[in-house]
Design a protein around this nucleic acid. Structure first.
Length: 474
DNA sequence: AGCACA
């Protein structure tokens, strides 16, 4: 069944109504493809900006003869096919139809997902991002974070039209050099659409902003300047407490699923959300409780204990810097128990950020806050007039007008007052969970028994039960 | 300048 493999040469290729175009300018847009091809027939589909360099494209004609016409025409023409002055090479595609799988990032929305390539998180301040994107309209909110893909930002506009104008203008372009630190080489913006419609910004911080809500509290850790481990009265470092626990799972010989974790951690109170992920080759999980107290009890009770008998899946717990996980409601790696009917809702959940089953934003996550001045000391804050779309010139030199120094308060356009309500909804559901007191958890009694005694792995302090008891995940 | 990975 190996049909591929043989290199196809121009003269031996079987005709197809799909043509493969190479050597296009990377900026090439569909209109230009159509312009080039439509003299030869009816175009029913295109796919442009294909390939690593985004310089290839496919065009599908309604009829095979139309494609043949185009190929034969340019095969004997003295004028090569051109787009923007570049010679375009045309051949039959080795496929016979274009499959347009629009990824989630291609569905227009009011929130953009911007990947800033070639920079570290610290290189591009949120003010610079705000400045750049404000050129296209009022930026409501920005959340930045680091992912495998690199430094990313979600940028929320009023509507999809504004967002798409920003995308059209900026995708593939670079942030002007003068807005970047010296050491940054190139930094291309890769822009797609997020499925989010309204970002949930909890704090104004150096990595997230809500420009619609001047009353939003400033990240407390930002005010302090640094997130430094608090020092207890005894002078020892005290962990910052949190309602979210970070569990590292050691010696993970058996599958640890969301359900298993839910069972284990529910013994101490309502578990709101769980996210499992891989880090440094190990498995970790975040478990969110409604409050710090519950988390503290669970942490103390479970620390160092094993999910399975025999020392398997040993838990090490610490407090996360997260306070509210933003997870898919229902996936194999995450669960949001605060959403009713999460099984159904899971289908509609917004996969705003690609690649990960779990996504969370944390305004407090970075340990550093640059400077005491809240706006990060940036003198580059600019307030461009919302709604206007200045032309974007990446070669723009410093010293251009438009910069005004803006105070360290946030540009206080109070738009939708309704946005305030959104924050109220971010709190915990009104489930008062009966806490299992620490004292009640004898080291020899499995807390698992509390909730789901049947068919669940045994929570053992150190494998002291009779050996040979196998976990139910075998 | 050489085939789409959503």
């Amino acid at each position: 069944m190996s049909t591929s493999g043989q290199p196809q040469f121009r003269y031996t290729q079987t005709p197809s109504k799909v043509l493969h175009l190479r050597n296009l300018p990377w900026e090439c847009i569909e209109e230009e493809l159509i312009e080039l091809c439509k003299p030869f027939g009816k175009i029913v589909n295109t796919k442009c900006n294909v390939g690593a360099n985004r310089n290839q494209a496919f065009v599908e004609f309604a009829d095979l003869n139309q494609a043949i016409n185009m190929v034969t025409y340019y095969a004997s023409s003295s004028e090569p096919a051109q787009v923007r002055g570049k010679t375009v090479y045309i051949q039959y595609s080795n496929r016979h139809e274009i499959v347009n799988n629009k990824g989630p990032g291609d569905v227009p929305g009011n929130v953009l997902l911007v990947t800033i390539e070639g920079v570290e998180a610290g290189d591009v301040s949120i003010d610079v991002i705000h400045l750049v994107f404000s050129a296209f309209g009022f930026v409501h909110k920005i959340a930045t974070f680091e992912k495998a893909a690199g430094f990313q930002a979600l940028i929320q506009f009023s509507d999809a039209v504004t967002a798409s104008s920003a995308r059209e203008a900026l995708d593939g372009r670079s942030i002007p050099r003068y807005l970047l630190p010296e050491h940054v080489g190139s930094c291309h913006l890769r822009i797609s659409y997020s499925a989010h419609t309204d970002l949930n910004i909890k704090f104004q911080s150096h990595r997230s902003r809500d420009y619609t809500n001047p009353y939003l509290p400033v990240n407390p850790t930002a005010i302090e300047g640094f997130v430094q481990p608090a020092v207890g009265p005894d002078g020892k470092k005290k962990e910052l407490e949190s309602n979210v626990l970070l569990a590292s799972i050691e010696n993970m010989q058996y599958a640890v699923t969301v359900d298993v974790l839910h069972t284990v951690f529910s013994a101490f109170g309502t578990v709101q959300k769980i996210a499992i992920f891989e880090k440094n080759g190990g498995t970790q999980a975040l478990i969110q409780y409604p409050d710090v107290t519950t988390a503290a009890v669970a942490k103390d009770a479970l620390e160092g204990h094993c999910i399975y008998d025999g020392g398997y899946c040993k838990l090490h717990l610490s407090y996360s810097r997260h306070t509210d996980l933003n997870v898919k409601a229902y996936s194999d790696k995450s669960r949001d128990y605060t959403i009713p009917e999460s099984g159904l809702l899971a289908m509609q959940q917004a996969p705003g950020v690609p690649t990960a089953a779990t996504v969370w934003q944390n305004p407090q996550a970075s340990p550093m806050f640059p400077g005491s001045e809240f706006a990060g000391g940036s003198a580059m804050l600019a307030q461009s007039s919302a709604g206007q779309v200045p032309s974007w010139d990446p070669n723009m030199q410093a010293g251009r007008p438009t910069f005004v120094s803006v105070s360290r308060t946030f540009p206080g356009k109070t738009y939708a007052p309704s946005s305030v309500q959104a924050y109220a909804s971010a709190s915990t559901p009104g489930v008062s969970s009966p806490l299992v007191q620490t004292g009640q958890i004898s080291p020899t009694v499995s807390p698992l028994g509390v909730s789901q005694p049947v068919h669940q792995p045994n929570m053992q302090p150190g494998g002291s039960l009779p050996p040979g008891q196998s976990p139910y995940y075998g």
